[in-house]
């Protein structure tokens, strides 16, 4: 049988869909509410008191477009980490799936695709909410779900890799504190990274979230030529984490 069979990938994804139907309301509620709360707190709070505009854009719109990246990382890296760990360690789900004609490559691919699809949709919610705060629709915004999808693939691969690496679920605290939070903070969501020290600015350039923020703002306020490189970087991250996740999951699931 050949590698990466669509039927195997679709089968694994159908399991995710069946499960998602049981919890979509809660996930959707939090995915919609969170950006609204952030926008109200930062956009209206800071925007009304301290910051009026950033880079010529009203602050609430600056934050709203940046929040897309926040929604993507929280709807991809975290479910990939915790979901994968729980399915492997507590539910023995992967043992059942791998007893069927599905290999590790197909399993990881399906999990990443599913997480990225969801994230591609949830990632757009902050953008939609920001319309209510005066953001003007633009044709470039139609690419935002696609940008979110590709970025989420990378974070899903990262999360699955972490799940296949840690021994105990509380070790995710280290991952969150050392990786997720810094990535989230130096993405340029709440403030432009140009104000950060030079070294941090360089680090921010290899932060996929920052590249996504810039692409989303490109979609909203106008693309630049460098955005092609940004997108290529996100594709490369997705491919790299995909292969690493497959390797780590293979080591974890196959004795």
């Amino acid at each position: 049988m050949r590698r990466l069979e669509p039927a195997a990938i679709a089968g694994v994804m159908s399991r995710e869909v069946a499960n998602f139907r049981t919890y979509w309301k809660g996930t959707t509620f939090s995915s919609v509410l969170e950006p609204i709360v952030y926008l109200l707190a930062f956009g209206l709070g800071l925007g009304a008191t301290l910051v009026d505009e950033v880079e010529g854009v009203p602050y609430i719109q600056f934050v709203g477009t940046g929040m897309v990246a926040t929604a993507v990382i929280f709807s991809s890296a975290l479910p990939a980490m915790f979901g994968t760990f729980v399915k492997h360690r507590f539910q023995n789900t992967y043992e059942a799936i791998l007893a069927a004609p599905v290999d590790i490559e197909e399993l990881v691919t399906a999990e990443m695709l599913w997480i990225a699809l969801r994230s591609g949709i949830y990632g757009c919610v902050p953008l939609l909410v920001t319309f209510a705060f005066g953001l003007a629709p633009a044709w470039g915004m139609l690419l935002v779900p696609f940008f979110c999808f590709v970025t989420a693939l990378g974070f899903a691969g990262f999360g699955i890799t972490m799940a296949a690496t840690v021994d105990k679920i509380d070790q995710f605290n280290y991952v969150t504190a050392l990786c997720i939070t810094p990535l989230f903070l130096v993405a340029g969501t709440f403030f432009p990274i140009s104000g950060l020290p030079q070294g941090v600015q360089l680090v921010a350039q290899i932060n996929p979230l920052h590249q996504l923020v810039e692409l989303v703002r490109g979609g909203a306020f106008g693309f630049e030529a460098v955005d092609i490189a940004r997108f290529a970087f996100l594709v490369a991250v997705a491919l790299l984490t995909w292969r690493i996740a497959i390797s780590r999951m293979g080591a974890r699931l196959i004795d």
Binding site: A7, A8, G11, S14, R15, I97, A100, P101
Partner: peptide, 8 residues
């Protein structure tokens, strides 16, 4: 149904 699909 999920496993029926996994088994093609």
């Amino acid at each position: 149904a999920v496993y029926a699909r996994l088994y093609r």
